[in-house]
Amino acid sequence: MSHQHGATSFWGELVISLAIITLFVVYLWAAWQLRSRRGWSWLRSVSFASGIVLVLLGLSPTLTAMAQHDLRGHMLQHLLIGMFAPIGLVLGAPFTLALRTLSVPDARRLSAFFRWRPMRWLSHPLTGFVFSIGAMYLLYATPLFAASQEQALLHSLLHIHFLAAGFLFTWSLIGIDSAPHRPRLRMRLVVLFLAGAAHAILAKAMYIYLWPLGVAADAEQIRTAAKLMYYGGDLAEIVLLIVLFAQWYRNPRCQRDLASQTVSVLPSK
């Protein structure tokens, strides 16, 4: 954990931040395009903006500098970028916005892409579960995290992975973009249950075995980071559950029974 590393990592974070800001500008531009037609819900824009802000907070120089030497800083980054930011981004319905603003042939191509078989596999909650929670076990229970502290590029890739996997998982659970293969509510609930449990178990294991493996940090610091992860995970799970059930509650097709629930797509206004 040298100072040189600190400098290079800063550039990695800056590049990701700029990419995220560009994405936000494109989103706002697309929403602006729709103003004269049916319009675009400002709530979705606000939701997307909050996701962007959370990513930027997670990548802020202050937190990045703290994460260099303090595991609690890293854990805050992990919670902000990988768990809370994706909720805002997903509820911003970016793909719905894209479909509405793209030219008809391009929109057809995009929706054909979503019907593509590998997308069915990729957008299943279990895939998101493996990419996000599975990767965390890999990161903390192996020397991978210790290596990421030494190599700036690996460190930046890690943040990109947190964001991408978090988005994929969150989108598969509570996405409001219409998806041809979105599994039933019951399946999504089961995966969320497993994810919540796996996250809590990993947090406690870190507390007990003082993981991440091979990191020479103060035991008290690791324990605080593990608790942060545990309760932060709780909060994220509760928010996901509330959104999931609110979608169920609002959807007239599945008011009768959980079993009769097939897809949860918000009616497009």
Partner: peptide, 11 residues
């Protein structure tokens, strides 16, 4: 079991 139970309680 603690992890599984904890997640189930939230649900």
């Amino acid at each position: 079991s603690d992890g599984l139970l904890h997640s189930a309680e939230l649900i």
